[in-house]
Design a protein around this nucleic acid. Structure first.
Length: 495
RNA sequence: GGGCCGUUAACUCAGCUGGUAGAGUAUCUGCCUUUUAAGCAGAGAGUCACUGGUUCGAAUCCAGUACGGCCCA
């Protein structure tokens, strides 16, 4: 008849019993605490005799993660943000009244304890408790202590449980934070200015993807959540900032997979008077540094595969990759597009006839080459018709000065020397608009102000976007993007 | 959007060809002052995801729906 389980009801009753006795269930006057991790670091090496000479009374707080009661005594482990430590509670030491209250404590409660250190028979550093107090009463039981919480849906929907129960999950997010910090450090120390540009944009631009639409009441204005910050960042180059970067969320209204979350984190950086080859060097430097700090070296494994990030990395043109890795003949690539269309059809990825040949190349690349690029590889010389914001190559105007970076069979970064000729840019926008697919709900629109900015004059520059979630996956050996995003998007669940 | 798989106690999972629900952990009671997946004895705990169908009888078979996972687009 109740929606709540017996266990939860029992816990709420216990809490009320404690409250009736005048015990605060949620006090907040704890004071300075020592941390389990630090205590263990210092005293783990001490033997019993040495610990007896330490007169200090330690003050700790943490969540009860395990509890073994023995009538008039008990062992429990509490966990704080730095680790677990064992507590020994004895009735003859804390007194019968305190012990009676202690019997109402449950696994999951947060408690405060003071006491001295000793070593158990098995050699575990343990706090012998003098006094203890309830700090936060837990009304819900923790999941099974040995298996933790395995159900992926529960793990993502109740991430707090996942973080609490599953070893390693907190480390993934600590590593994520560290990687982001290192990236900020790398760019700021190289003279890049961190900026914030609009996430709500009146015109969709900077990438090809479906946007989320929203609306501003007071201005009676349609807005889109950005799919990329690119066009705003390049306006800043026009404005005189030579080196800028932005590290923040993008939003794409598309499918969800182990590689895609509708909101994801992207680093974009732009550097005036540099070209895409300079950015390859930066990218190698940055990743090698992260690998050293996070992995202890350039060589490590991702999902069982060995990855070696020692610079310099392999470079291939898109054409070379299609020929050498994809096994497509050079003549076929440059011959009748019908043959490439047929190949795509055979691969189960049919294309519409109105698409440019460059699109066939990149689609074939995605299917035949990308999954095989395990070691870091820069693919360069992308066709102009799939690179609307990139500068044309001076020698071969059919391709752009652009690269994409692949590691473990996945696209990690995309970069190019920026197109800064306003006439060329305007033409490319016009072509994009003319060639738009009829199925697109939000038709591309000319960003006239961006063209105007280029007319003012943008210095020659190069820019790059790095998918942070995928970088974190790589360095934390995570198979799914949901493992590196704290609260991945899931369907709403009726309760 | 398509294919395959999953959903059983708070958690981790059994439950075969249809016969009316099980274990471990957690919880409760008793014993227990060096345990650590503590131990021993006992107890309680379920809308078998949901809706419909087949059947004398459905956790089990069928269909649909919801949510999730993996793969593909």
């Amino acid at each position: 008849m109740s929606e709540e389980s017996q266990v939860i009801l029992q816990r709420k009753q216990k809490a009320e019993e404690l409250e009736r006795e005048g015990i605060a269930l949620y006090p907040n006057d704890i004071g300075n605490l020592e941390k389990a991790g630090a205590i263990k670091r210092v005293y783990d090496g001490y033997d019993q005799a040495a610990l007896e000479k330490v007169p200090h009374v330690f003050h700790l707080a943490g969540r009860i993660m395990s509890l073994r009661r023995f009538g008039k005594a008990a062992f429990l482990h509490i966990e704080d943000s730095t680790g677990r430590i064992q507590l020994h509670v004895r009735r003859d030491q804390i007194g019968p009244e305190a012990y009676r209250l202690f019997k109402k404590y449950d696994i999951g409660d947060i408690i405060e304890a003071r006491g001295t250190l000793f070593k158990t028979k098995t050699g575990e550093l343990t706090l012998s408790v003098n006094t203890m107090r309830l700090v936060t009463k837990s009304m819900r039981p923790l999941p099974e202590k040995y298996h933790g919480i395995k159900d992926k849906e529960l793990r993502y929907r109740q991430r707090y449980m996942d973080l609490l129960m599953n070893p390693g999950v907190r480390d993934v997010f600590r590593t994520r934070s560290k990687i982001i910090q290192m990236m900020r450090q790398y760019f700021t120390s190289n003279g890049f200015l961190e900026v914030e540009t609009p996430m709500m944009q009146p015109i969709v631009g900077g990438a090809t993807a479906k946007p989320f639409a929203t609306y501003h009441n007071a201005l009676d204005m349609n807005l889109f959540l950005r799919i990329a910050p690119e066009l705003y960042l390049k306006r800043l180059l026009v404005g005189g900032f030579d080196r800028v970067f932005e590290l923040n969320r993008n939003f794409r209204n598309e499918g969800i997979s182990t590689q895609h979350n509708p909101e994801f984190t992207m680093l974009e950086f732009y550097e005036a008077y540099a070209n895409y080859e300079d950015l390859m060097v930066r990218t190698e430097e940055l990743f090698a540094q992260i690998a050293r700090d996070v992995k202890g070296g350039h060589v490590f494994t991702y999902q069982g595969q060995e990855v070696d990030l020692t610079p310099p990395w392999r470079r291939m043109t898109l054409e070379e990759a299609l020929v050498e890795v994809g096994g497509i003949g050079r003549e076929e690539l440059h011959g009748d597009p019908a043959s490439l269309m047929q190949r795509l059809e055979d691969l189960g990825a049919p294309v519409k006839g109105n698409e440019p040949v460059g699109k066939y190349w990149t689609k074939l690349f995605d299917l035949l080459v990308e999954p095989r690029l395990i070691q870091p590889t820069f693919i360069t010389h992308y066709p102009v018709d799939v690179s609307p914001l990139a500068r044309k190559n001076m020698k071969d105007p059919g391709v752009t000065d652009r690269f994409e970076l692949f590691i473990t069979g996945r696209e990690i970064a995309n970069a190019f020397s920026e197109l800064n000729d306003p006439r060329d840019q305007k033409r490319r926008f016009e072509e994009q608009i003319a060639k738009r697919g009829d199925d697109e709900e939000i038709p591309p629109e000319m960003d006239r102000d961006y063209v105007r900015a280029l007319e003012v004059g943008m210095p020659p520059a190069a820019g790059e976007g790095i998918g942070i979630d995928r970088v974190v996956m790589l360095f934390t050996d995570s198979p799914s993007i949901r493992d590196v995003i704290l609260f991945p998007l899931l369907r709403a669940r009726g309760e």
